[in-house]
Each structure stands twice: as C-alpha cells, then as structure tokens.
Design a binder for these strands. Structure first.
Length: 744
DNA sequence: GACGGCTAGACTCTA
DNA sequence: TCTAGCCGTC
C-alpha cells in the first residue's frame, strides 16, 4: 500500500482538504488550470491507500475517453499494481458496460449495436419515409436533434405527456417509431445508453441496489456539463451513501446544446444538503495577464458563483490582438508568427489554433500547406466517418448483429450487387408489415417468393455471403476477418477497378483501418480491462466496435508528433498549450450568430471564449478579420464583444471597440471625439422601441466621419445600422457601441 | 437498376 | 462552397 503521506505531498491546502473529505457530498469548484485532475487522481489514490475503499468500489466519471485514460494512467502511477482496478470511464462507456450486463431486463439483447449520429440520422430518415412525413415539415436533422434533446432530459416516447396539438402528436408518433425501430435492430443510440440505464435503475431496485453497494465512492469530473439524465443517474447511484465528489467550474459549462444544465453545479449544495465546498483558485498553468484577461471576459456573465484566479508565476507577455483584413490575412498572420517562433526554437506542437466552427480551418490549412508545415485538424470529418471506413465497419457490425438494420441497409448494395431500390422497397415493406428487422424480412421475402427471379438470386447470394462470415467469425482475428471480407465482397476489387485518385485514397484508408484494427488486437489482450474489474472477458470484436463508436474528437490526438493542432474551442477543453491563437473573434462568428438574440446563449459563448483563452500557458494571441467569406458570400463582421471586454492595459496590438480602431493602417485614438454618445443606461426609449435612427438620416461617426443611414435592422440594444460613409464606404454599425451624431 | 447531372439548402458545438 | 437527393437516360 502506498504511503498516505506520499499521496498528499506536494499538494496545496485546498487540494488536501478536497482529498481528505472522503465521506458525504463534496463540491470542488476548480478554476481553469487549478490542478483538478491532480486532485481527483490523488483522491482516488488516497481512498485506496488509506484503506477506505477497495479499488473496485470506486467509480470516476469523465466526459471524454482521453480524460479517462489520462486519469487512469495517473492513478496507476500513484499505486501498486494490485491496488488498481477502479473504474475510470466516460458516462457513456460506464452506462454501456452496465447495459451489456443487464439489458436483457429491458427486453434487448446484450450484443446490442451502438448507433452514432450518422446511423441515427439514417434511421430518422427511414422512419419519416415510412410514416409519410415530408422532409419540409419534418427536417430529418431537426427531428434527430429533438429526439436527442429529449433523451438527454431522460424522456422516452412513453413519457411524452399532453400535447394535444398536431405537431406534438405527430412528433410523438415519429419518436415512438424511431425507438421501436432501434429495438428491432437491437441497437442503442448515444442517448439510449444514458436514458436506458436510468430506466433500468428506476424500474429494477434490486439492480440499482447492487450497483449502489458496489460503487461506494463516486467521483465526477466536469460536473458543470452534466445534463438532466446524467444528473438523475448520479443521484440514483449515490442515494444510499451520498459519497459523491463532483469537480467543476461553472465558467466552463459549454454543452447546453446537449442539454447540459449549469444549474446542476450552481445548485449542488441545495441538491445535496450538508455538502462541503472547496475552491481551487490557484492556477498552475497561465501567466497573470492571460488569467486576468480571461477572467475579465467571463466576469461579464451573470450566471456564476464568481472567483478570482491567481498564479505565483511572475511576469508574462500581454495578450496580443491582431486585426486582419480577411480570413486569409488572419491565417497568414498566424503562420508568419509560427515561422518566426520556429526560428527561435519553438516547436510547432507547442502552439494551437482555436476557432468557433470547423469550417474556419480551411484558410489555415491552405497557408500551412504553402509553407509545408505539418498540422493536424482535430475533429471535422473523423477518420471513422469516412464512407469506406464506415462501410467496412458496417460489414463487421452486420456480421456481429444481423438485425442491425442501419448497417445492413448501408452495405446490402455496396459494392453494387444488383440489389437496387425496388428490391429494397419491397423488403422494407415486408419488414414494416411484419414488424421485424430487415435481415428477417430478407429471409421472409426469399421464403415466400416475394422477389422476382433476378432479385431472388442476388438476395439469396447476399444472405449466403453474410451467413458464411457469421459462421466463421468466432475465433478468427478481426484483422483477418476484415481483410477477407473486403476481398470476398468485391469491395476492394470495385475500388481498384475505378482507378481514380479518390478510389486510391479510399484504398489507403482501408489499409489504415486494417492496421488500426491489428494494433487494437495487439494492445488489447482479450478483455484486459474487464477482467481487472472482475467481470467476464468480452468478445474482442464487440470491444473494438464500441470503442470506435464511443471515441471522441480529442481522443485521437497524438502529442508526440511535432505538428500544429487546429481545433474548435469545444474540443480544446481540458487541453493546454504554451502558445494559443484564438481566431475569428467577430460578432456572428464568436459569439456565434445563432446565440445573438438569447442572453444566456451569449453567456455560454463567453464561457467558451474563456475556455479557449485559459488553455494558454505563456502566450495568447486573439485575432479577428474585418471581412470573411462564409458559405460563399462575403460578410463584414464587427469585432467580437469579448475583445472589448478585455481591459486595455492587458492587451497589445490592434484593439477594437472603445480601445480605438485601426482603419487602413491608420490608428485612431481610443478617446471618443466630440460626438454625442447615446447612453443606454438612461435610455429615453425602451429597448424594444425602435431605435432613434431612420434610413435617410445624415449622421457623423467619430472615426468614419459623415455618412447616410441606409438601413436599420433589429430592435432594442441589438439593433444594427447600415451606413454609407462618405469616406469609409458601407459599414454595419452596432447601435449599442455606436457613438453617432445626428447631423440634421 | 446504374449513373450522371442538376438544384436546393445547409455549418455551430459533441459523446 | 459542398453535398444529399431528385430526376432523366441508357
């Protein structure tokens, strides 16, 4: 057993408090970079090392596999080999493991498939078609998102109450059918993993009881991002002993779109009476200017407990700001900075570029290619989302679980084997009529001679092919199975015949998949992890398929390569880099335009900006572009409000907003000129009234000079004016920030 | 049943 | 700008 002294050595007082408080509910408010992973891992080690818990009595839940892996490794480093075996996993994989054991009680089979977003969308489309719901009234993506939101709130079709209006009823019908089809496929979507586990615990007290007794200590990372169904799950798990330790930072709650509820962390003390609270405010990552700038931004939010981050690090550069003319200029500025740093010996891997949306990566990629600089775009289209890779995996899935209809439909005519739309329609009709899976319907169609001569032959050949693989699948290595499968199905031959650059790339990807599979088999001696937990070893193919599905964006990041990483601010959470560029800081981009008319959504954008800024250890550079091409059209964006929320003394470079403008290379002073400032704090008009400007009026702007109002858009404090300035041309001015003089 | 060409609509963020 | 889905032709 490790020495308890050695476990707490080197921790600060607050961290030690958090570790020593082992019994009952505990809320740890951990600011960015305050050593929360350290606290969590040492807490696990302490629980075991002090003899309070056996490893298997501990459950630690995170949001990404990467975080789980890191935590597991760090716990292992603190403990002897025989003290390992605490379950450290994501919410989704924790639920998946529970369901693999228990799901028969809910009427599914343990070998269920897991549907990712693409599978789920395909199923929604099939359901809409079967129900005759038009895509205009029921856009598939919207329906999928609505179902997902409900599941994240723990609501299954049976729970939908009331709603006598047509929309609600029709939606309930769609949702019900979607869920029925999932069950017929013996498949679960991401939301099901959570909601069905809660359902299981709520309907089977004896099952819940066994897990309550098993996991006597529960730890949760990133608690601010839990959604209602995760919250319910945690409450159920700790109901008996209340040994729940949650760690989080309300300023880093950025997953409202998947129903994360910031109130979970804000109300923790109310939900768990008698909870202890520990605050970790000492930051071990960033310089003071970076911390102050990030804190100043997030201080503009109302929904927070408030904290003051400090560091013992001395000095540090000011936060830099750069104003680019367009997105290409923004990219070339970033790359030129990187080049000059590289000349001074800074590794590329020590820098990262964060943007709001994936679509912003492109100009950076082009610029980096120009200089032959290695880079990695994290996210976007994942390797496993590529068509050929997905096809190959669907073959494996269909062999493992033939009733997985989405997989089967995907590969039934891939490569083309003459089973076309007409045949499929017939089989689908049969499946709907009998209420069975597509695989069963294929059998029925053959048996009852429902298909024409040619179709009959092709379908029975396909069925035989799949059955042949099913019969020989066990015992075989996955790599061998996959290789044989790709050849026997003619998949490889079809690509080779195509002989295009694209086909060549697809073949490369399949080879890459093969090596990945082999690597997986090499690393995972049969069911290692499961055996540590005292469970039955699991089938390797099952493990592989679910691992691939539950893999997240950041999980694939390999820090040993010297390459620049580009990623969204969401993916960046939990990571840190010496040098960080946050780009595209413009109104409508970051904050994203979809959030602009909702104050709480803007607060979430602000938290996201805070997350991005606090990833930086030594240098932080903030960029924006005056114009940007988006979806093919040119847009003029105002500087992000977040930029003007940073106090002037913390920043250097082109400061927008009340810190002065740079226009055409010329610097303008921060002090407003004699223009009449419209002071909204004593507004003569209520925010919902029309703004006091009309098209056609002549106005004067302190920087752009005289001009004519062309258009007034929006109302209240979000109103915008389009003004054609005599010298500076057409500009869009946000009324809130405008210092306009009426000239009439 | 396969394939090519055209058009409307979409990109926010993710396990 | 890109792509999924539709339509027409062989």
């Amino acid at each position: 057993m490790p020495n308890v002294e050695s476990i707490t050595r080197g921790l600060n007082r607050e961290q030690r408090d958090a570790i020593a408080h082992t019994e009952g509910p505990l809320l740890v408010l951990a600011g960015a970079g305050s050593g929360k992973t350290r606290m969590l891992t040492h807490r696990i080690a302490y629980l075991i090392g002090s003899g309070r818990a056996r490893p298997r009595e501990i459950l630690a839940v995170t949001f990404t596999n990467k975080a789980a892996r890191e935590m597991r490794e760090r716990v292992h480093a603190l403990l002897d080999a025989d003290a390992r075996g605490a379950q450290v996993a994501t919410f989704h994989s924790t639920c998946m493991r529970i369901l693999r054991r228990e799901i028969a009680q809910l009427g599914y089979e343990p070998g269920f498939a897991i549907y990712d977003q693409a599978d789920s969308l395909a199923l929604v489309k099939r359901v809409l078609r079967a129900l005759g719901a038009g895509v205009r009234a029921w856009p598939p993506r919207g329906v999928r998102a609505r179902i997902d939101r409900l599941k994240n709130r723990g609501i299954l079709p049976d729970d939908l109450v009331g709603g006598d209006d047509e929309d609600t009823q029709r939606f309930a019908e769609i949702y019900q059918r979607y869920q029925t089809e999932l069950r017929r496929s013996n498949a679960l979507d991401f939301g099901d993993l959570l909601v069905l586990t809660v359902r299981l615990f709520e309907t089977r007290p004896e099952v819940l009881d066994s897990y309550q007794r098993r996991w006597r200590y529960v730890l949760v990372d990133e608690y601010q991002d839990t959604n209602p169904v995760q919250y319910r799950l945690l409450r159920l798990l700790v109901a008996a002993h209340q040994n729940l330790c949650v760690v989080g930072d309300e300023d880093q709650s950025i997953y409202a779109f998947r129903e994360a509820d910031i109130r979970n962390i804000l109300d923790f003390e109310k939900d768990f009476p008698g909870a202890n609270v520990v605050r970790l405010e000492q930051n071990y990552r960033s310089t003071q200017p970076i911390l102050d700038a990030a804190s100043a931004v997030v201080a503009h939010n109302l929904e927070r407990k408030g904290k003051r981050l400090f560091t013992e690090r001395d000095g540090g550069e000011l936060v830099r700001m750069y104003e680019a003319s367009d997105e290409r200029d923004e990219a070339s500025f970033v790359v030129s900075e990187l080049l000059s740093w590289r000349d001074r010996g800074v590794r590329l891997a020590d820098s990262a570029v964060f943007y709001r949306t994936h679509a912003q990566s492109r100009p950076f990629e082009e610029e980096l290619l120009k200089y032959n600089l290695p880079y990695a775009v994290v996210g976007g289209t994942r390797f496993y989302d590529r068509k050929e890779v997905k096809d190959a995996l669907c073959y494996l899935r269909a062999i493992r679980n033939p009733h997985d209809s989405e997989s089967l439909l995907r590969i039934v005519n891939e490569p083309a084997r003459g089973i076309g739309r007409t045949t499929i329609e017939r089989v689908l009709a049969c499946a709907n009529e009998r209420g069975v899976s597509i695989w069963s319907a294929l059998g029925i169609a053959l048996e009852e001679k429902r298909l024409g001569g040619a179709a009959f032959k092709r379908v029975s050949a396909f069925v035989e092919l799949m059955e042949g693989f099913r019969a020989e699948a066990p015992g075989d290595s996955i790599g061998q199975l996959l290789a044989r499968l790709l050849n026997a199905t003619g998949y490889v031959a079809a690509l080779e015949k195509e002989a295009t650059v694209e086909a060549e790339a697809r073949l490369d990807n399949l080879n890459e998949l093969l090596s990945a599979v082999e690597e997986f088999e090499r690393v995972n001696a049969p069911g290692v992890e499961e055996q540590e937990n005292g469970d039955e070893p699991r089938d390797l193919l099952d493990l592989y398929l679910e691992q691939v599905t539950l893999l997240s964006e950041a999980d694939t990041l390999d820090p040993s390569d010297d390459r620049l990483v580009l990623m969204t601010a969401h993916v960046a959470k939990g990571l840190e880099f010496p040098n960080v560029f946050v780009v595209g800081l413009e109104e409508g981009i970051f904050p994203h335009f979809a959030s602009l008319d909702d104050p709480s959504a803007v607060e979430e954008e602000r938290r996201l900006c805070y997350v991005a800024m606090t990833r930086a250890r030594d240098r932080l550079v903030l960029c924006r572009a005056e114009t940007r091409r988006l979806h093919g059209s040119l847009r003029y964006n105002q500087p992000s409000r977040f930029l003007s929320e940073i106090p002037g003394e913390l920043a250097s470079g082109d400061r927008p907003g009340d810190g002065g403008y740079a226009v055409g290379g010329e610097r303008f002073p921060a002090e407003p000129s004699a223009g009449v400032r419209i002071d909204f704090s004593h507004a003569q008009w209520s925010p919902d009234d029309l703004p006091p400007f009309q098209a056609g009026q002549r106005v004067e702007h302190p920087i752009f000079g005289p001009g004519s109002v062309v258009e007034v858009a929006g109302s209240g404090s979000d109103a915008k004016l389009r003004i054609r300035f005599d010298r500076a041309g057409m500009k869009t001015i946000k009324l809130r920030y405008a210092e306009l003089d009426l000239l009439n």
